[in-house]
Every structure is written in structure tokens, then in C-alpha cells.
Design a protein around this nucleic acid. Structure first.
Length: 463
RNA sequence: UCCGGCGUGGCGCAAUGGUAGCGCAUGCGACUGUUAAUCGCAGGGUUACUGGUUCGAGUCCAGUCGCCGGAGCCA
């Protein structure tokens, strides 16, 4: 008999004379009344399906000793109204198969709460918990939503390279990629001879696909990248990973206002899409992980985002009576506490801060006429903080060249990038969104290591 | 990289420098259309590692490793 997913049976909530489910046993409760209750989960939804199996069923007698929390099973029987209060329907089992048992003495997952720190040590088994099942279903929906949003708008999904040459993109430390014999590194003139390396050049894992993305935006008009990104920073916080996924749209003929319009529409779409397609999972997060989560999400869906000039934002912070650990000062980056104050106390809604000082932003952002600021923007969400950083890109060859030399960047490495300004240059803009931070924000999970299947952090590449 | 906290049965935690305990889980038994079921009994430990102080160290000191949080940096 063909297997039906548990999600479908519970959602339809109607009786069937004969169904088959396959999944993993979450709990088993024996009754001396001559039958047992099993809770089966197959990952299709948060809920388990309850199975009632009589101890006289032949296959139960055969498999009973091997039927514990963690075992994988197939169960056939009638789907009927449940006598219990916790579920609408349940299966009266006629037949049971145990594919693989799980020794209760050594199976690490118990019918109780586990700390996320402990679950990280068994990252290969944690998807069998409620929380991680829910996180990965939401993560999947968000990934799908990203593709849907851009595809519906006619953006081209662009695959930018994972291995890149050059080491001064300015977006964090590179992981080096080499096939040189580390016990016998070739030197020339006292320096490592990268001519002998695999690519004939010093190479590393990408820290951003933006610059390559710009080249295709200058041909296909609107593109986006969505792929893995690597930073060899020795940062040990709940918001950083050494390997993470990034979404980077890049649009020709967009100015900074167009960029902000798109970012706002994008965020609202993703939150709305997750709310409507992952309702059960998000309700679980609201109840168990982060109370108030859903109210916050609805606010983000409904309220228009506030837009405030950086200089005005500094003024607002200086005027405020709030006590900050770091005093706000024009020319400095906004601290996390400043960002929270703006979105939560001043505006009480998502905020986009734009026109940042030139000194604290990278070379590729377009200079304003004031000579002091660039057309950069950050999207700040209440309670959640910064989720997007973007800018209009500098499209003037001479200005870009000057900014590169001011920041000590070797123009020879970026000749191809400068060429975009020599041949048919056009105004263009883009932004970047850290995918795991988005998943973190939407699920309310506190630690970024718990929203990616196998987190890579300093000193940890297990699994 | 810097600052701070932590490391004790499978898991979560306790123990004034003086016999390493408790809850959950596990095993066995009782009871029950149960819902993280409940009740009783039992088994389970080189207190992260190395060295030091002390009559005596889970506890104090030094170092190492790991985990967690924050800063910086960023997404």
C-alpha cells in the first residue's frame, strides 16, 4: 500500500479504511489494557500521528522488543476518529514493520527538553526534534520564497564563483584555496610562488558574489545570487558563521530609492509568505521559543518602513534622553543599541537608514555630492536588528578609481570591475541579505548555529 | 584577537577545602484510552585534561583544551 504523509492525514482530518504511514517513533506508551500508543513523525509537519496497536496484532508481537523512541517504522491500518482529546484522527494499526530499531540505552534523544548546546554535538540526530524539524521546514520555505519573489519579477538567478582570485575585497578574511604542498612551499624572490599553484594565482573562497553580480546586471538588467559565502573571521558570537548563505540582488538603472523600495517589498513578501505557509511551525516558535514573535512579524508585514537619513538619525539619537554605552557621533557606525533605539523607541517599526559617511563604507558605494556621504542603506527590524545592507554603486570611472586608491586597493586586480564603468556604465544598485540571519529572525532562534543544518564555526567543522 | 562565564552519571543540575547527591532518561515491577502519563524498586561517576598547594581538592592556584556570552568585524 502506498505511503501517505502524516501532514496530509492530519490536515484532511477525515477517516479512511486503509492508510500506510512511514516515519520514526517519537514516543511509545504501553497500556496493560492490551494495546500500545505510538507517536509517529515523518518530518512532513510538526505534529505526530497517534497509532493505537493491539498487542494481539501478529507483527506487533514480532517487533515489540525493537520498537522504541527513534525506531523507523511502517504502519498500516484504519484512520479513525480519536477517542483522545489531543488529536482528531488516529490509526488503528493492523500491521507494523520496524525497519531499524534504536537501542534506548544509547539513543541520545529523550522524551524531554534538550539544550541546544547538547543538540549541536549530535547535529546528525537533532533534525529528529520538534524544533529542528520546524527550523528546517521554515528555512526551506524561505529559500523557495526568495526564488519565487525574484523569479516573478523577472530577475535572473546567477551563479557566481565559489573560488575567487585576489585578496582585497575588503569583506573579511579569506579562506585560502591551494594545492601547493604545505610541507614544501615554492618560493620566488622570498615570496610564495603562486604561479605554481593550481590556478596560477593566490585564490580563496568567495566572501561575496556582488562584484561578479554587477557584471551580469550590466547585461541582463536584474540578477540575484543565492549561494554559500565564506569568512575566515575568528568571531565567536550567536550571529556569525564561517560558512553561510547570502542573497545578493543587483539591478541596473536602480537608484538608492529604487533599491530601498525593493528591499522593503522583498522583506514583506518573505515574512508574509512564511506566515501563510509555515503557520504551525511559526506558532510553535511563538509559543515555545520566542513569545511575541508573531505580533512582531505582523507588524513587519503591515507597517510601511520608515526611511531616515543617517545624519538625521544621529541627531535623533543625540537629542534623546536614552543612556547609551557608546555615545552617538557623526562619522561612527551605529551601534546595536542605537539601531534598536531607532526601530523600537523612536519609530516603532522597520527603519531604513541611508546616506552613511563615506569613511565607514566600502569603495564601491556611490558618492553623494556633499563629498562626505555615500548612497548606502541598512534595513533595521524592531527586536531583530540589521537584516540588509545595500547601496547604489559608484558608476563614474574617475570617482571609483580615486576611491579605490584612497582605500589602498590595487586597481590592477579590479580592471574587469572598472571596465563596467568604461563601457556602457549605468546607474545600478543592490543589497545583501544573510540568509541564516533571516531564518534566525523569522524563527526567533537565538543562535545562528541552530538555523543551518551543519554549522561551521572556528574550531568546528564536524559532520 | 580581546573581555567575562562555564566544564560533575546518557541529559539537566546540586554539593562551606572533609563519605560525590537530586530530577529526568534507562532496566524491572504495578496501574492506566494514554498524551512529556503516573507510582515503586534498581543499575549507572577516574568531577574536561596536565601539574601544583594541602593531612585531605569537584571546590584553591597555574597551564592546556572545549563550550557559551559580549566586544571588534560583519551578513
Amino acid at each position: 500500500m502506498k505511503r501517505t504523509k502524516i501532514n496530509q492525514l492530519i490536515t484532511e482530518n477525515i477517516e479512511h479504511p486503509e492508510v500506510t504511514v512511514k516515519g520514526w517513533v517519537r514516543t511509545r506508551r504501553d497500556s496493560k489494557g492490551g494495546f500500545s500508543f505510538l507517536e509517529i513523525n515523518d518530518g512532513s509537519c510538526l505534529k505526530n500521528i497517534q497509532v493505537v496497536i493491539d498487542h494481539s496484532v501478529e507483527s506487533f508481537i514480532k517487533f515489540s522488543g525493537n520498537l522504541h523512541t527513534g525506531s523507523s517504522v511502517a504502519i498500516s491500518g484504519a484512520l479513525v476518529r480519536s477517542q483522545g482529546k489531543e488529536q482528531g484522527v488516529e490509526i488503528q494499526a493492523k500491521e507494523l514493520t520496524v525497519y531499524g530499531g534504536a537501542d534506548p540505552e544509547s539513543f541520545p534523544l529523550q522524551k524531554k527538553h534538550h539544550s541546544f548546546e547538547f543538540l549541536r554535538e549530535i547535529a546528525h540526530l537533532r533534525p529528529r526534534t520538534n524544533t529542528f524539524g520546524a527550523v528546517m521546514r521554515v528555512r526551506n520555505r524561505l529559500a523557495f520564497g526568495i526564488h519565487k519573489f525574484f523569479n516573478d519579477k523577472g530577475f535572473v538567478y546567477l551563479h557566481t564563483p565559489i573560488i575567487t582570485a585576489g585578496d582585497c575585497e575588503g569583506a573579511g578574511e579569506l579562506f585560502q584555496v591551494t594545492t601547493l604542498d604545505l610541507d614544501n612551499i615554492p618560493h620566488i624572490d622570498g615570496k610564495i610562488d603562486y604561479k605554481q599553484d593550481f590556478f596560477g594565482d593566490k585564490t580563496g573562497l568567495t566572501v561575496s558574489g556582488q562584484l561578479q553580480g554587477e557584471t551580469y546586471a550590466m547585461a541582463l538588467s536584474e540578477i540575484y545570487t543565492f549561494g554559500p559565502t565564506f569568512r575566515a573571521e575568528n568571531s565567536h558570537t550567536s550571529r556569525h558563521l564561517s560558512e553561510f548563505w547570502m542573497v545578493e540582488p543587483e539591478m541596473a538603472f536602480y537608484d538608492l530609492d529604487d533599491d530601498m523600495d525593493l528591499a522593503e517589498e522583498f522583506i514583506k513578501f518573505l515574512f508574509h509568505d512564511a506566515l501563510s505557509h509555515c503557520a504551525d511551525d511559526l506558532e510553535f516558535f511563538d509559543k515555545r521559543i520566542h513569545p511575541g514573535l508573531l505580533d512582531n512579524h505582523r507588524l513587519i508585514c503591515d507597517a510601511p518602513f520608515e526611511r531616515v537619513d543617517y545624519s538625521k538619525a544621529i541627531e535623533l539619537l543625540e537629542k534623546s534622553n536614552a543612556k547609551f554605552t557608546y555615545a552617538p557621533e557623526w562619522g561612527c557606525n551605529l551601534q546595536a543599541e542605537h539601531e534598536h533605539y531607532l526601530s523600537e523607541t523612536v519609530f516603532k517599526r522597520p527603519v531604513m537608514v541611508y546616506n552613511y559617511p563615506e569613511k565607514i563604507k566600502p569603495f564601491y558605494m556611490k558618492a553623494n555630492e556633499d563629498g562626505k556621504t555615500v548612497r548606502a542603506m541598512d534595513v533595521l527590524l524592531p527586536k531583530l536588528g540589521e537584516i540588509i545592507g545595500g547601496s547604489q554603486r559608484e558608476d563614474d570611472y574617475d570617482i571609483l578609481l580615486k576611491r579605490m586608491s584612497d582605500k589602498g586597493i590595487d586597481e590592477k586586480e579590479y580592471q574587469w570591475y572598472l571596465d563596467l564603468r568604461r563601457f556602457g556604465s549605468a546607474p545600478h544598485s543592490g543589497f545583501g541579505l544573510g540568509f541564516e540571519r533571516l531564518v534566525q529572525f523569522i524563527t526567533g532562534m537565538e543562535n545562528i548555529r541552530d538555523v543551518i543544518p551543519f554549522p561551521r564555526t572556528p574550531k568546528n567543522a564536524k559532520f
